[in-house]
């Protein structure tokens, strides 16, 4: 069972507490019956929405950042905190255009998350493919599970 330890901002909107309860229910349901598909909620969340997963050696942080190129993204790891910053530029605002619909927003973002374990900060890799940013963080040696052999006495 994974230990979840993420810092939450003090106030994330009126729905944040409800969201937290829902997440906990999801974790509980997963623990009991492998019910994976409880829909996530992004209401009141911080951009970009993240999916975080782990295997024995790595932590994977995935973010959907469409329209933001690799050069507009800034990542840093400090201790157990991962910071993702970036900016999305306006598209084609210089020309004389008339907009029919404007649903894609522009602006800057910054998000800091506390990682569940310590990581090897110098071996963190990140790539951005088709608008999905994947950050691979190798876990620190001391938190990796160790196999202990039982000797026959």
């Amino acid at each position: 069972m994974a230990i979840i330890r993420f810092d939450r901002p003090l106030f994330r909107g009126p729905m944040s507490e409800y969201d937290r309860m829902r997440r906990e229910m999801t974790a509980l349901m997963r623990a009991f019956g492998g019910y994976e598909d409880f829909p996530p909620s992004t209401a009141g969340g911080v951009y970009p929405p993240l999916n975080i997963s782990e295997d024995t050696d790595h932590i994977y942080v995935r973010a959907e950042v469409p329209g933001i190129g690799a050069k507009d993204l800034q990542l840093s790891v400090e201790g157990e905190t991962l910071v993702i910053k970036g900016e999305r530029m306006t598209n084609a605002a210089d020309e004389k255009l008339s907009f029919h619909r404007r649903e894609i927003e522009c602006g800057s973002f910054s998000r800091a998350i506390t990682l569940p374990t310590r990581v090897q900060a110098d071996k963190v890799q990140a790539k951005s493919v088709d608008g999905i940013l994947t950050i691979t963080l190798p876990k620190a040696e001391e938190v990796k599970p160790k196999k202990i052999t039982v000797n026959v006495g």
């Binding site: 959907e64 950042v65 469409p66 329209g67 598209n91 084609a92 020309e95 004389k96 255009l97 008339s98 907009f99 029919h100 619909r101 404007r102 649903e103 894609i104 493919v129 088709d130 608008g131 999905i132």
Partner: peptide
């Protein structure tokens, strides 16, 4: 997908946000 649609003198452009699609 969220879209931007804008029109110029000689074309209409549709931009759609579809992360993860190659």
């Amino acid at each position: 997908p969220p879209v931007d649609i804008f029109e110029s003198k000689d074309s209409v452009t549709v931009m759609a946000e579809m992360p993860g699609v190659a």
